[in-house]
Design a protein around this nucleic acid. Structure first.
Length: 289
DNA sequence: CACTTGACCTGTCCGC
DNA sequence: TGCGGACAGGTCAAGT
């Protein structure tokens, strides 16, 4: 999915586009994408006003005036795209833009607003979901209860970063950094990018990594996340922002999906291996076991 | 408990 | 062109 920078980009886009909008209709194509009962939808979603859009880890939270929140997980291929019919075919959008072809066959949920605009939840693989939950119960959702700290929070320190890993010392650093209960928001792209930045081989055991290396990793995680947010996220395949636009971080990636190309630091050919059952990109010279 | 693996889905790409 | 298999940004539930 969309990892932290992509979800953050969608959140920022929605905050510019849908605050104050009133929801009039919701349509869904299967229960998996939007499992709520019609009764709750009629009572707490229809006629509600969008008040805030928040993010926690890789989860989007759209707070409504009814005291309910739309909790959205994009998983691997989810998209959340706002389309205003007044601008759909207008200037600034090429005719082949995604927004001109929505809804399409991967559209799972459509939210209509009272001014005639729409929010499309697209998800090719159907792993993602939208759930309507009382706002006060969101922190009690099982994922929210166990998810780790936000790496970009100003008060999150290198000391806490290291201590979060200590309890997971018997696994590889790649598995640990992908574990959302250790730290929130890091997925496969930014795991590889930050491990390359810190010159740590992803298959090394957590217990064998020094505090100095953890300090470097902490810096690199924050660096790649911040850079990616600045670039509008990574479009590896499907990802687009709330306006249907792709992110450009992949133009700046150092190892991810760059197997066969030279390492930007030493020129050695980047290779792709498997670690923690995930495709993993490394420089075999900079990152040694 | 910590850890690993398979399952959830659809689509694409690569080798034959 | 077609077919089979591997693989894809993430998380769970089951297993060990």
């Amino acid at each position: 999915m969309p990892e932290l920078p992509e979800v953050e980009t969608v959140k920022r886009g929605l905050n510019k586009l849908i605050i104050g909008h009133k929801i009039t209709v919701i349509k869904n194509d299967n229960l998996k994408s939007f499992p709520n009962a019609k009764h709750d939808v009629d009572q707490f979603l229809i006629e509600s006003i969008v008040e805030h859009v928040r993010r926690r880890a890789k989860v989007l939270l759209i707070d409504l005036s009814t005291g309910y929140t739309l909790v959205i997980h994009l998983k691997m291929t989810g998209q959340l795209v706002f389309v205003d019919d007044k601008t759909r075919f207008g200037a600034g959008h090429p005719t082949d833009s995604l927004i001109n072809s929505l809804p399409d066959k991967s559209t799972r949920v459509i939210i209509d607003f009272s001014d005639g605009s729409h929010l499309y939840f697209n998800d090719q693989r159907k792993f993602g979901w939208v759930k309507l939950i009382p706002t006060l119960e969101v922190p009690n959702m099982s994922f929210m209860m166990k998810v780790g700290p936000e790496p970009l929070e100003a008060n999150f320190t290198a000391i806490e970063f290291v201590s979060r890993f200590k309890r997971r010392s018997r696994t590889t650093i790649k598995a640990a950094i992908l574990n959302q209960t250790v730290i929130a928001g890091v997925g496969n792209i930014y795991a590889d990018e930050s491990l390359w930045g810190a010159k740590i081989h992803p298959a090394r055991l957590v217990s064998d990594i020094s505090v100095a290396e953890f300090d470097n990793l902490f810096t690199e995680v924050r660096f790649v996340m911040n850079l990616s947010i600045e670039k509008g996220g990574s479009t590896n395949r499907n990802y687009v922002d709330a306006e249907g636009k792709k992110g450009s971080y992949m133009d700046f990636a150092r190892v991810f999906r760059r197997e066969g190309l030279p390492c930007p630091r030493c020129g050695t050919e980047i290779i792709k291996i498997k670690v923690a059952s995930r495709g993993t990109h490394i420089c075999p010279n900079c990152q040694q076991i």
